[in-house]
Amino acid sequence: MAKILEKRLIRSPDVFYYKIDAPLISKKAGPGQFVIIRLHEKGERIPLSLADINPEEETISLIVMAVGKTTSEMSTYKAGDEILDLCGPLGQPTHIEEVGRVILIGGGFGVAPLYPIARAFRSVGNGVITIMGARSKDLLIYEAEMHYVSDKVIITTDDGSRGTKGVVTTALKQELEQNGADLVMAVGPAVMMRSVCETTRLFTVKTVVSLNPVMVDGTGMCGGCRVLVAGQSRFACTDGPDFDGHQVDWDILMNRQKSYLDEEKESFDAWKKRHAL
């Protein structure tokens, strides 16, 4: 059992911040790692990226967007409630070393896991530039936090309601042309990570992506999270989640992410019906 110590709505109506009591995980976890939760006896196991790790106060933080059955159900949990199973840290931590200038790119609420990653890159002496994008300013999260751990934050919105009008890759291209970079890392929807990789390929900048395939156990046992990287089948849970983005077969990843769309809808609809939503 893991207790929720704090819960906040950070983007109306569906993105929530949770601070969870996790003494052991907080001491062992590194940036880029994730946990798997199971809410209750009948629940599924879902992976969630760590949005913060705080060993002093023995907590981890998660940012969850209520998009399906489990995440919506989790959005009904309050501070003081307990999550039945919390397993982690899982995956390999992001490889952190001093390389010079690092550009981090977050799309949508995928910016949250970049927070501990940015802090780690900066702590070893890198210059950290964060590019974060959303459709409009209301959908941006973690802006203040990213300012806190970055040397520079570039914001893009599709409608121009905040920052530069356009998508993250436009800003990335400009940044690479003007100042260059030694490493790019992208976290967010697969389609965004793929276009980041297409952009950086032109500049031959090493690009790390954090992949998010469907997962079950998270320990390498089932192979459900396999991805094709450099022609090799790799497991995101044990070999990843970080991979060289220029080597990832994005079509396979995006296709496999859609495996259970029908079932997810069926499960969500049944839940909404039960809760008269």
Binding site: D217, G223, G224, D249
Partner: peptide
Amino acid sequence: ENLNGVYSANEFLTR
């Protein structure tokens, strides 16, 4: 082998 609908027995049975 990476098509949707291809499982390892471990995954199928674990589910």
